[in-house]
Write a protein that binds this DNA or RNA. Structure first.
Lengths: 145, 145
DNA sequence: AATTCGTTTAGAACAATTCTAATTCCCGCT
DNA sequence: AGCGGGAATTAGAATTGTTCTAAACGAATT
């Protein structure tokens, strides 16, 4: 696992952005790292509460937003519905299983992003690409959910 | 322009699904065809009203949903915020200009979808792929918005 | 003309998120 | 230690986008 993906990285990144490390931010980030099933803010709230019962939902939203700003977490929106959060920083696509509702990370080979970017006509300057598959995954597929 | 992208196609597709052609559905579809700037339901509502002043917002939502069901229109969700609607049926990606907020369609070369699909590990069965670019488009880029 | 069923409608309800204003917390300074 | 100031958290209200509900409408069918 890359060194960046642990809690020490958090205070580092926060400091870099002139922000403070707080218990709320740490627990929110820990929760995302611990169960990488692309939870919604509400789901994060529920999980964080078992550790920090007095945290408020607004703070969970604030913390998630902060983590996204610091590039430690990606916010993902397939379809209408709540935003989901993903601490996987490697370039990856999302596979959305329409049967189970679960979302799987699919690592992207380095050359693919190039190839995808190459379809952009002149004048388009892309800073990021998102790829979302929809379909059905075999039961046997190993996954972090 | 492909024959499917006109209003006659609408009653055809509706009939195929056992649905009726109505003035509301026609105007909603016309509005989407006429100005392809990926409008939200509210924006569609505003445009339709100039032609059909008594239509209700609920009906606009209903019609849009119907058109999506008939595969005449794609619903698109980048980021949180309202769903946007797109009558472009060709395989295409979306380029979201972060400066202007405008969304541009980018046609996909036939081999790209193959290439993209090929990164899926065994066991993943994709029924559709969505590709979203974010970035900045040069002012000079020609576009239907 | 009565029946039926799909469609439209207004408004209420709902879900997700953001805003507001008050409080609390932490840090550096005296 | 005590104080001032900015950052962070908080509860709850407000907002936004969408869906639901129940009534009314309308076109086709008996």
């Amino acid at each position: 696992m890359p060194a960046i993906e642990n809690s020490d990285a958090l205070s580092q990144r926060l400091a870099d952005s002139g922000l403070r490390s707080t218990p709320q931010r740490e627990v929110v980030y820990d929760v995302l790292l611990k169960k990488r099933d692309h939870p919604t803010a509400d789901e994060v709230y529920a999980r964080v509460r078992s550790e920090l019962p007095s945290i408020s939902l607004a703070t969970v939203y604030n913390c998630l937003e902060t983590l996204v700003q610091c590039d430690l977490v990606r916010a993902v929106n397939f379809e209408r519905g709540p935003t989901r959060y993903c601490p996987n920083l490697r370039p990856h696509a999302h596979f959305h299983d329409e049967q189970t509702g679960k979302t799987h990370d699919i690592d992207l080979p380095p050359d693919l992003l190039e190839k995808v970017n190459s379809i952009l006509p002149r004048g388009y300057n892309s800073s990021s690409v998102e790829i979302i598959f929809r379909g059905k995954a075999a039961k046997t597929v190993a996954s972090i959910e």
